[in-house]
Amino acid sequence: MSLVELRTAVLAKNDDLAAALRADLTAAGTTAVNLLSSPGSGKTALLEHLLARCVERGIPVAALTGDLATENDAKRLARSGAPVRQVVTDGLCHLEADLVRDHLDGWLPAGTRLLFVENVGNLVCPASYDLGESLRIVLASVTEGEDKPEKYPTAYRWADLVVVTKVDLAAACAFDEQAFLDSVTGVHPGIEVIATSARTGQGVDALLERVLPADL
């Protein structure tokens, strides 16, 4: 019996692919944004608005959207007029860097400045997989409860920005904003939080300004 010391990252292949993808996208002037949330928190609805605003303003934008099954989200998002591609994971609960790269190769229009990657709705595994993004956003809807960050600390700890969705429903579900902010700050001190509503449009422009490359 022999002991072999290795010290190898288990996700090294994914991490290496993601780093290469990030370098390629950055060199091409594309900012990639990875959107994480639980199912039903409003990623697609918010993304519909973000894509529509970009198209209105002439910003070259594109989106990949991941789901276990169906092309429903791609069809919804394509109504914005932006290039959209569905990633059907066929049961895989998260996106991985090679899936993203394979779906971008030969498809991502040249000159794309902003690329949204809507992850599979899940706050567990997606948190462990770097997709080559420059910005990772975790979304939480007001209907999910104020302690979501403490229940899924990994997703919140490695995010760059927190977006609260469906704030038009905050009063109806007695959402305690301060309790949510305390929960966020507990797991990720100092992280920025933006409140949005896809229904009223609140916060959508502020979010877009936050994710846009500095020269746009």
Partner: peptide, 23 residues
């Protein structure tokens, strides 16, 4: 709470025990 997380994200294969050829 102005802190940067510097450890704890690890998911690393530290070592393995393998059978030698004669085993």
């Amino acid at each position: 709470n102005a802190v940067d997380v510097v450890g704890g994200r690890d998911l690393e294969l530290a070592s393995v025990e393998v059978l030698d050829d004669d085993e």
